[in-house]
Simulated assay, not measured.
Amino acid sequence: MFTGSIVALITPMDEKGQICRSSLKKLINYHIHNKTTAIVSVGTTGESATLSQEEHIKVVMLTLELADNRIPIIAGTGANATTEAISLTKRFEKSGIAACLTVTPYYNRPTQEGLYQHFKAISENTEIPQILYNVPSRTGCDLLPETVSKLSNFKNIIGIKEATGDLSRINKIKELIKNDFLLISGDDTTALDFMQLGGQGVISVTANIAAKEMMKICTYALKGDFIKARSINKRLILLHETLFIEPNPIPIKWLARKLRLIKYDTLRLPMTLASNSTQLKLEKAIQYANIKKY
């Protein structure tokens, strides 16, 4: 359930910035058709920072409804206040959500002890499986391997999405944790190398528009066939990189609209639409990757 290609799903909006049900349904069906392993709903790629908590819950529950038990749904439930993260996580207990993805607190830059106590409190106050999410470039704090090791002792903390892009982290974490603790890449550019070093999959931005390709890369990698995996990934390298020349999810939303997966590439302020120069680079990247309109 939590290995292979997991998509960090964008949150489609209409021209007025309201949630677009028809585009969300189309995206979910696209991922089911292309055998994506699971969907992360309202993670950071899903614009959790600019949705109200009411909207956040609405989008997760709508995703769950439209998926209709055809694909596991993981809810993003991170917050920079521990009480808010607990409240949001508890909201999804017994809802049918498979797990929660919990980003490290952002902006307030807690110490390692603060990070440990934060995730410990979430674990002790909820029953739903938790996947830790470490992305220092966006949050301003880094969940170190030693802290991950301590947290792995809680039975409902089942893995980590590691998005530093630092491949040396894998062995450092593996040396300190149990074998059944999941190591999932959060960086498309290095995801294949991450899996070759022992990771079990990727929570992917690229999969939003290249679901079949990301599924095949992960399937081959987890079978140990890295020659076939690399032959596909080679076509996607430029795309992996270009998706982050402006802050995520600006580029991926523009491409999803371009490829007819969503109706509009609307974002909530302070996020703005992709610049003309970025659009040209994205066009080049999808041509190189040979990604077709849906």
Results as ranks from 00 to 15, higher is better:
35 K>F: 09
37 T>F: 13
38 A>P: 02
38 A>T: 04
38 A>G: 04
39 I>C: 08
40 V>N: 04
41 S>E: 03
41 S>P: 07
44 T>A: 14
46 G>P: 06
46 G>T: 01
48 S>M: 15
51 L>A: 08
52 S>Q: 10
52 S>I: 08
53 Q>W: 10
53 Q>L: 14
54 E>A: 15
55 E>N: 01
55 E>R: 04
55 E>F: 02
56 H>Y: 11
57 I>T: 06
60 V>A: 15
60 V>F: 14
60 V>I: 15
60 V>T: 12
61 M>E: 09
61 M>S: 06
61 M>G: 01
61 M>Y: 04
61 M>H: 05
61 M>V: 01
62 L>K: 06
63 T>V: 09
64 L>S: 11
66 L>R: 05
67 A>R: 05
67 A>E: 08
67 A>M: 09
67 A>K: 06
68 D>S: 13
68 D>H: 10
69 N>Y: 13
69 N>M: 12
69 N>P: 04
70 R>L: 13
70 R>H: 14
70 R>T: 09
71 I>W: 03
71 I>M: 13
72 P>G: 14
72 P>H: 12
72 P>E: 08
73 I>D: 04
73 I>V: 14
73 I>E: 02
73 I>P: 00
74 I>K: 01
78 G>K: 05
79 A>T: 05
79 A>D: 14
80 N>W: 07
80 N>S: 00
81 A>V: 06
82 T>G: 08
82 T>N: 08
83 T>S: 15
83 T>D: 09
84 E>F: 07
85 A>K: 02
85 A>Y: 04
85 A>V: 04
86 I>M: 14
86 I>H: 05
87 S>P: 02
87 S>G: 12
87 S>Q: 11
87 S>I: 05
87 S>Y: 07
90 K>W: 06
90 K>T: 05
91 R>E: 12
91 R>G: 03
91 R>T: 06
92 F>M: 06
94 K>E: 11
95 S>K: 04
95 S>P: 00
96 G>P: 01
96 G>Q: 02
97 I>T: 02
97 I>N: 00
98 A>R: 10
99 A>G: 01
101 L>E: 00
101 L>K: 02
102 T>F: 01
102 T>H: 08
102 T>D: 07
103 V>P: 06
104 T>H: 05
104 T>Y: 06
104 T>V: 14
105 P>T: 10
105 P>H: 07
105 P>I: 13
106 Y>F: 15
106 Y>I: 07
106 Y>C: 07
107 Y>K: 07
107 Y>C: 10
108 N>F: 05
109 R>E: 07
109 R>L: 06
110 P>T: 08
110 P>M: 12
111 T>G: 02
111 T>M: 11
111 T>K: 04
112 Q>Y: 05
112 Q>M: 12
113 E>S: 15
114 G>S: 14
115 L>V: 10
115 L>P: 10
117 Q>N: 15
117 Q>Y: 11
117 Q>P: 02
117 Q>W: 11
119 F>N: 07
119 F>Y: 13
119 F>M: 11
